[in-house]
């Protein structure tokens, strides 16, 4: 699979990353290398192997449904740029 600079720009935009043209070219080359590696791995016959979703083959530990957190709003909001009436204020978002 070949990746173009347009693809890189689109992914960068989705990830909200500002990239210069030079950086885009570097990223494209690096990503292309990764895709080559994937292509190589796809040649392996994995028909009878269940895909892993995590690097460690163990399962999730669960916590009991108990409230353990206390209200630390003041502490958390002390480092927020702007708060009002208990709310975090952010630049207006309009759909």
């Amino acid at each position: 699979m070949s990746i173009t600079n347009t693809d890189v720009r689109k992914v960068a935009r989705l990830a909200r990353l500002a990239m210069s043209e030079t950086e885009i070219e570097t990223a494209r080359a690096q990503l292309a290398g990764i895709f080559d590696l994937i292509a190589e791995m796809q040649a392996v016959d994995t028909r009878n192997i269940a895909p892993m979703s995590h690097a460690q083959d163990v399962s999730q530990r669960l916590r009991e449904d108990v409230v353990t957190a206390t209200n630390q709003r003041e502490l958390f909001q002390s480092i927020a740029p702007q708060v009002e009436a208990g709310l975090y204020l952010v630049p207006q978002v309009i759909e």
């Binding site: 916590r63 449904d65 108990v66 409230v67 353990t68 957190a69 206390t70 209200n71 630390q72 709003r73 958390f76 909001q77 009436a85 208990g86 709310l87 975090y88």
Partner: peptide, 24 residues
């Protein structure tokens, strides 16, 4: 549930803003 899906903050409806919002 009493607590959130990935942390121990409460889920009660109608609390003061951000008083049930822990670090997670």
């Amino acid at each position: 549930t009493s607590s959130k899906i990935f942390c121990g903050a409460p889920t009660a409806f109608g609390a003061e803003p951000n008083t049930q919002a822990d670090a997670v």
